[in-house]
Amino acid sequence: MTTDRVRLSAFVHGHVQGVGFRWWTRSRALELGLVGYASNQADGRVHVVAEGPRDTVAALLDALRSGETPGRVDLVVDSLESARGDLTGFLER
Rank of each mutant, 00 (worst) to 15 (best):
L64P: 15
L75C: 10
D43W: 08
T2W: 10
R22V: 03
R54F: 03
Q41K: 10
A29V: 12
L87E: 09
L87Q: 12
S82E: 14
V57N: 10
A38S: 12
L34A: 01
S66A: 04
V48Y: 02
R93E: 10
L64W: 10
R45V: 02
L8T: 01
V16C: 11
S66N: 06
G36H: 03
L30Y: 03
T69D: 04
L75K: 12
G85H: 14
L75H: 15
V57T: 11
G14N: 13
T88E: 07
A50V: 07
L61I: 05
A38R: 10
P53T: 09
S39C: 03
F90T: 08
D78A: 01
L34N: 01
R7S: 05
R65S: 06
D43S: 00
P70Y: 01
W23V: 08
R84H: 07
T69Q: 07
P70V: 00
V46D: 15
E92Y: 00
H13D: 14
E51C: 03
G18D: 00
E92D: 12
L8Y: 01
L80G: 07
A83V: 14
W23N: 10
L60R: 09
G67P: 15
A29T: 06
D78N: 07
W23R: 15
S82Y: 04
R54K: 12
G44I: 05
V48L: 13
T3N: 10
L87P: 03
G52P: 03
E51K: 07
R22E: 02
A83S: 12
G20C: 13
L32G: 09
F11Y: 07
S79Q: 12
L87A: 11
V12A: 00
G18N: 05
V35S: 08
H15K: 15
A59Q: 05
V48F: 07
G89D: 05
T2A: 09
R22G: 09
A63R: 13
G20V: 04
T69A: 04
L32R: 06
A83Q: 08
R7G: 08
A38C: 06
S9E: 13
S66F: 00
L87F: 10
A63T: 06
G33P: 00
S9K: 11
V46L: 13
E81K: 09
H13Y: 06
D55G: 01
Q17V: 14
F90H: 02
V57S: 08
P53K: 13
W24K: 15
D43F: 01
V46F: 07
T25H: 07
D74C: 11
L75E: 11
M1Q: 04
G36I: 00
S79N: 13
L60G: 08
G14I: 10
G71R: 11
S82H: 12
R22A: 01
A50N: 09
S66W: 03
G36V: 00
S39V: 15
V49S: 12
T2L: 02
V19Y: 07
W23E: 09
V16I: 13
M1G: 00
S66Y: 02
G89A: 06
V76M: 06
E92P: 13
R28I: 11
P70I: 00
E81A: 11
S79F: 02
V6W: 03
G44R: 14
A58S: 08
T3W: 00
G33L: 10
A63K: 05
F11S: 14
T69L: 05
Y37Q: 15
T88W: 04
W24I: 01
T88Y: 03
